[in-house]
């Protein structure tokens, strides 16, 4: 079943075509990686899906509903969750508070905005997510004082607490150590059992390990799409991206 269908999506910044004529579909339960050289338009593309950047043309359907006109925060409520490329946790708040902000939104989604979920349910939800990413022991520490790798995990935990149907990860392993990356891959696989994942990634080992299918972008356009094996074999891709 198709979860996300993007047709003819385009965006230009002051005359420069960042993304042009993208057609793209994502199946439910899939882990998809988007790769491509710097400036290929990957972040602009997923930013349009998450609603942070307005497209200059084309449409986006999520779960058979046209969401092109929805604002970013409305899309989050539909289940499209974006985790930031540059770690964007609340540095002055504790890990618990960081995740609680996400969980409280998810649990209180159907309540009027001045009402909020019961405290006990919230605590349970937060601790479950922190446990899952391995940060439960650090729940009272300030996010800004965590090690970089832990901040990235916290970022993912915030995404998880929103119970995403589509989780967009923008270069999640950037700046992580080897062992942290291995951990991270295990976590993403685990998340992938409950959600569809769209991943921008430069590290090809990570891509090969996680992705069911790979989309290659170059110069704002779709260059190729296929299974990891197909992409590795594709001459165009090798020329444009892998450089071999």
């Amino acid at each position: 079943m198709t979860l996300l269908a993007v047709s003819n999506l385009a965006r230009s910044f002051g005359g420069i075509q960042a993304v042009a004529d993208m057609n793209f579909t994502l199946e439910n339960g899939e882990i998809r990686a988007i790769i491509g050289p710097n400036g290929a338009g990957k972040t602009t593309f997923v930013s349009m899906i998450s609603g942070r950047v307005e497209p200059s043309g084309g449409s986006i359907c999520f779960d058979d509903i046209d969401i092109t006109g929805l604002r970013s925060w409305e899309r989050v409520r539909q289940g499209i969750v974006y985790t930031f490329q540059i770690t964007s946790v609340y540095r002055n708040l504790s890990c618990f508070e960081n995740v609680a902000l996400a969980a409280q939104q998810q649990l209180g989604r159907d309540l009027p905005f001045w009402r909020h979920p019961p405290r006990a349910a919230l605590t349970v939800a937060v601790e479950m997510v922190l446990e899952k990413v391995g940060l439960l022991a650090r729940k009272t520490e300030l996010a800004g004082e965590l090690a970089y790798g832990h901040q990235r995990l916290l970022e993912v935990a915030m995404g998880l607490a929103l119970q995403p149907r589509l989780l967009i990860l923008d270069e999640p392993t950037q700046g992580l150590s080897e062992s942290e990356i291995a951990n991270f891959c295990a976590l993403v696989k685990e998340i992938g059992r409950g959600a569809t994942i769209l991943l921008i990634e430069h590290n090809m080992d990570v891509v090969m390990e996680l992705a069911h299918r790979i989309t290659v972008m170059s110069n704002g356009r779709l260059l190729a799409e296929g299974t990891p094996a197909e992409i590795m074999a594709n001459i165009d891709v090798q020329r444009a991206y892998l450089g071999t």
Binding site: S50, R52, S72, W73, V76, R77, V81, Y82, F84, S88, V89, Y90, R91, N92, L93, E97, A100, L101, A102, Q104, Q105, Q106, G108, R109, F113, W114, H116, P117, L122, M158, L162
Partner: peptide
Amino acid sequence: SPAGRVLIAIRENEERTRMLGYD
């Protein structure tokens, strides 16, 4: 209250708060 937590979140990082689904 949880609402106050959201206000503080807006003060700390408005765009992040929006991307957590808050209006």
